[in-house]
């Protein structure tokens, strides 16, 4: 038995109820509360407004707010499901839920497809993959000749684009990742299993809030 019964659970003013968020996700109520500690820390890093801006998201990822990054931008846009330009706590918990070790594999595959479908056409196109490869090269300061990039793209599309129409559809992607399971590694965050241990202060804050209210 824990110290707190569900009716005494903390409410997050202006944010979705942790019990409701837990019911929609693989997280327990305590884990949602622990995620709130992480959310508070990220959402107050530039402006303490209870929302995560793109700048705050990049700061949390890179510890450097100046670092623009195509992939971080894309992840931010997928977290920001309501397209408000900011991530609220509900968005944050529901998006991280996909990365939970217990989340359905299909949800991970679906999220990864959206991630690489930069312009949301329902297909991963060759020019999108080339754009991502060039962004990666800029990020890592690795240099590859254009011919080498084209060889990598040729190889990838021969393997993934089964009907050879120059773009990868959802079914081709599902098939491709099932043959290349290592591509799904980025879709699971083992940290999420231990979130209450990483942010134990959620218990302390719960107690303080109960006394304060």
């Amino acid at each position: 038995m824990g110290c707190f019964s569900s009716k005494h659970r903390r409410q997050f003013p202006g944010h979705e109820d942790p019990v409701s968020l837990a019911s929609q996700t693989a997280f327990t109520v305590s884990e949602v509360e622990a995620l709130f500690e992480l959310f508070k820390s990220i959402s107050s890093s530039v402006i303490d407004d209870g929302l995560i801006s793109k700048e705050e998201f990049q700061l949390a990822l890179f510890k450097n707010r100046k670092k623009e990054n195509l992939f971080a931008n894309r992840i931010f846009d997928l977290f920001d499901v309501k397209h408000k330009g900011v991530i609220d706590f509900g968005d944050f918990v529901r998006a991280l839920n996909v990365f939970h070790p217990n989340a359905p594999h299909e949800d991970k595959v679906d999220f990864s497809f959206k991630l690489y479908d930069l312009d949301s056409t329902g297909f991963i196109e060759r020019q999108e993959v080339k754009q991502m490869l060039i962004a990666l090269l800029c990020e890592s300061e690795m240099k590859l000749a254009d011919e080498t990039i084209e060889i990598i793209l040729d190889k990838t599309f021969v393997d993934a684009d089964v009907n050879q129409d120059g773009k990868i559809d959802k079914e081709e992607w599902q098939n491709f990742v099932s043959r290349n399971p290592s591509l799904m590694k980025i879709m699971t965050l083992p940290y999420l299993r231990d979130i209450t241990t990483t942010f134990p202060s959620f218990v302390f804050n719960s107690e303080v809030d109960e006394i304060a209210t």
């Binding site: 949390a60 990054n69 990365f99 980025i186 990483t198």
Partner: peptide, 24 residues
Amino acid sequence: PVLMNAFELISTSQGLNLSSLFEK
């Protein structure tokens, strides 16, 4: 890198490494 498929390379981007969100 020529031996790797494009997505294997892309998935090494730091921007896709969300574990850094949890590093205090």
